[in-house]
């Protein structure tokens, strides 16, 4: 990993520029993305309308009443000058209890079968490492996390489900995620958490932010119920 960057700045619209830092998905990139995120927020100040970090990029949406695109480019270039990666502690850590079970995670045994292992082994593998939240998208509070170990990587379902329940924990390719609310979805579902990912009543409305680190922890059905989890089986339709 080089210790300096040559960010590319691309026009993407009247009031938006894309800061492109990398060309591949890598957890080692996140400290740079986070550093760029804080530098841009600070430098653009009230001229910043939205800043959307993702795996390799940051989308800067700025206020055209305050800045021309030339001025915005200049400010962004200044902000990224001499950037240093954020420390490993920059993202917050979360431990997410998950009830891994076929009734709420039908792909648990399918993945186990494919690997020729038992479901406990799949759970061990899924809970065996910290994941990085690369980006939020698809739905409020939905974090694309990774990477799961190579063997666990599983293509999306050929036919997405009409309704994936809130709290469902899934895998697609080498990424893992939790559905914050009931929605359609094509990820392979392994289990369910009772933790609320997006809660308008909470100070921290979205539990996850880009750059956070997440570790899953297996819990029993009883513990899941105690935490307020909904044991309704995932409907296959």
């Amino acid at each position: 990993m080089s210790q300096s960057l040559s960010p590319r700045l691309e026009t993407v619209g009247m009031d938006a520029l894309m800061v492109r830092l990398f060309d591949a998905i890598d957890e080692a990139h996140m400290p740079w993305i986070l550093a760029a995120d804080s530098a841009l927020r600070e430098r653009l100040g009230e001229a910043l309308i939205d800043l959307v970090p993702s795996y390799t990029t940051l989308l800067v949406h700025y206020d055209v009443a305050l800045l021309s695109q030339i001025e915005a480019r200049k400010l962004i270039q200044d902000a990224l000058q001499g950037l240093k990666p954020a420390s490993n502690e920059a993202g917050r850590e979360h431990r997410i209890p998950v009830w891994y079970d076929d009734s709420v995670g039908p792909e648990l045994s399918r993945i186990a079968e494919r690997l020729g292992v038992d479901t406990d082994d799949v759970v061990r593998r899924h809970t065996g490492r910290d994941y990085c939240a690369f980006a939020l998208g698809f739905a409020p509070g939905y974090a694309f996390m990774g990477l799961v170990e190579e063997a666990l990587g599983t293509p999306r379902l050929k036919t997405p489900r009409q309704r994936v329940p809130a709290g469902s924990v899934g895998i697609a390719e080498r990424q893992t995620a939790i559905y914050p609310m009931r929605s359609p979805g094509g990820w392979n579902i392994l289990g369910r958490t009772a933790i609320k990912l997006f809660d308008r009543e909470r100070d921290e409305i979205s539990l996850f932010r880009p750059g956070d680190r997440v570790r899953f922890e297996p819990i029993s059905r009883e513990a899941f119920i105690e935490q307020g989890g909904d044991t309704t089986p995932l409907e296959e339709r």
């Binding site: 619209g13 009031d15 795996y55 990029t57």
Partner: peptide, 10 residues
């Protein structure tokens, strides 16, 4: 492509 932020009207 690797997913990235999408501006209005993209």
């Amino acid at each position: 492509m690797i997913s990235e932020g999408i501006p209005l009207g993209a």
